[in-house]
Design a protein around this nucleic acid. Structure first.
Lengths: 344, 344
DNA sequence: GCCGACGATGCAATCGCTTGCAAGGCGATC
DNA sequence: GATCGCCTTGCAAGCGATTGCATCGTCGGC
């Protein structure tokens, strides 16, 4: 059990310079690949040698102060506990580290004032860019305001008419795909378990679904069921409400997989079979969805790609490249076992 | 569609000072709650007023350079795509932000040289502490070396005889709990699908399981099945191998839930029922495990708490408090439907 | 043999903020 | 009314690295 209390102070350019009786600037140049040629080879060798004898690590904070960049990008999520964000963060991280930047992560808990505080904090940190995964409708202005100070990207959860680049899925298309699926299976009476209206993906999915549903002659059950948060519990609650109110639709579109899982659980508790009594479809195809009971019919939200693209946009904005258009990625319909033709 | 190209330069202390014909140091004091009292009230008011008229945000990078701290803590995970890490990161983040620090996240892909490079990078960043979630046996030395430069904590995946604090679960206990469960159900012949030996949780779980199993008179099937990585695919592969080699055990302990999911899938493909033909237990109780098909018997790995504790230790080390002992958290047995008594 | 040029290194300012110390001004004390 | 001391503000150094410019020495050319 060695003692770890005493951390060694990190060596600085000045330390190396002093040791070799050189000037820090010479050491700086010798250690900068782009400028190493300016330093005579033997000197350079001595510098490099003492540098790693002393375990020199350049102080990126100092470098960042001088250069006005920090090589970090802020990522602001709504709820890190939601499996949905995992692939997004994964995609973001892998793109960023491949270019020497690093994500700093924070979480809003879907609270607008927390978001505001975090944005402020990230501005203070002088991150090179900010990726907002937690956007709600009401947050438009504050995000725009922030974007005037730091390049900002809105990703995963889109915002409309906003003056910052957006990386998003085509939510309406996803909704349409599910409406078609229900229609093709022969359902006539369908319902939606809606996610919070504040998160634009949900009303957009709803819109696509309703539009296509009515085109195809489907009837939507009346009670408008809106979840306070997109969670399993809320899915159960909405489904219970649906079960309590009059005639049950034969197919239900839950606006995300968690709501769908909750809905299935509620149906089970009321001795309804999925998909025999009621078909249930989710949305996102979050990890493990395929192994759920029953394997959930869903629409794949391209999370990894959204993260990857968002990072790409953020990095290029940070590099001062001009803003370019939004990125919209196609979701993909994934049929599984939780949907089936209606009884008889 | 407003133009976002031109970011405004952030105001500095000097800007405010110039505007009011004061010295930057006075402004600095006025804006520091701890020193605000040193500044005459009317002056302070004028300062605060122009500060937020100019949208002043202190440059944390500069502040960090001066103070020798960055208010960031590095978190190094093995695979951000693994649902297992989600709660850990969640716990870490929530603890950190509640104290003004922020996590920067990176991923090793379980590659030791990547880990080495990342540790180096984080040292260069002068993060206040490092939390390593990606430790493998072979990484002990490099982690110890790093810990001499930056306070370091190993969490989630433990390492033995290492000179840095460890926050871990009691893996042996978890293994024992499952052995007991199998014995109590009446199984006699059991098997393990092992995770990589390099990740100590797995051999420790194995050890606890085997020890208790032999105490209770269980017999372990012979082929030693070790996954190259703890993934669903590897679980299937190992299970196929087990199915191909001689007599099938009646209960299988997969070292994590992903392996278990893969094992269940493989059994299904071979027309074996879980739990009727074979009981399968996993480990971790990762999110959604309870909604899998079948609901997985498992041992709950206290991920959120491990993250939370690891952050606590990291923060206190960063604050210069002396190192204290390791933290070991108890896992909890969670019986569900994937295990049952053996046939007849 | 002298001068210009170039190659190698040093110097000093700078990024933005913090902080110990100095200094100026004022009220209080004797 | 002079002195002491406190209250408020200014000054300047310094955190660690970068970089334009100055400087010094040497080499080559004529």
């Amino acid at each position: 059990m060695t003692d770890t209390g005493g951390q060694r102070r990190n060596a600085t350019l000045a330390d190396i310079a002093a040791e070799l009786d050189l000037h820090p600037s010479t050491v700086s140049r010798a250690l900068d690949p782009a400028k190493a040629a300016m330093v005579k080879a033997p000197t350079r060798r001595r510098i490099v040698e003492t540098a790693d004898r002393l375990g020199y690590r350049p102080n990126l904070a100092a470098k960042g102060l001088k250069e006005g960049r920090t090589a970090t990008i802020a990522v602001i999520a709504a709820d890190l506990g939601n499996p949905w964000v995992t692939p997004i963060i994964h995609g973001l991280t892998s793109r960023m580290t491949s270019s020497g930047s690093v994500p700093v992560i924070a979480e809003t808990g879907d609270d607008s004032s927390t978001l505001a505080a975090l944005l402020d904090h990230m501005v203070a940190r002088r991150v090179d860019a900010i990726v907002v995964l937690a956007a709600r409708r009401a947050d438009r202005e504050i995000i725009e305001a922030t974007s005037r100070l730091v390049p900002t990207v809105v990703a995963a959860r889109p915002l409309e008419d906003i003056g910052v680049p957006v990386v998003r899925e085509r939510s309406r298309l996803g909704g349409r795909l599910l409406a078609e699926h229900f229609a093709e299976l022969g359902h006539r009476r369908v319902a939606q378990l809606r996610g919070p209206e504040e998160v634009l993906n949900f009303p957009n999915r709803a819109e696509g679904f309703s539009a296509r549903a009515s085109e195809m002659g489907l009837e939507e059950a009346t009670p408008r069921l809106v979840a306070a948060r997109p969670t399993i519990d809320e899915g159960s609650r909405l489904m219970d409400e649906l079960l309590d109110r009059g005639p049950l639709p034969t197919a239900v579109f839950a606006h995300n997989d968690l709501l769908a899982v909750g809905a299935v659980a509620a149906l089970r508790r009321r001795a309804q079979s999925v998909p025999d009594d009621v078909s249930v479809a989710g949305y996102n195809d979050m990890p493990l969805t395929e192994h759920l009971d029953p394997a959930l019919t869903t629409v794949r939200f391209p999370g990894w790609q959204v993260g990857h693209e968002a990072a790409t946009v953020a990095l290029s904005l940070a590099a001062g490249e001009p803003r370019f258009g939004d990125v919209a990625l196609d979701p993909e319909f994934v049929p599984r076992r939780s949907t089936a033709p209606p009884r008889e």
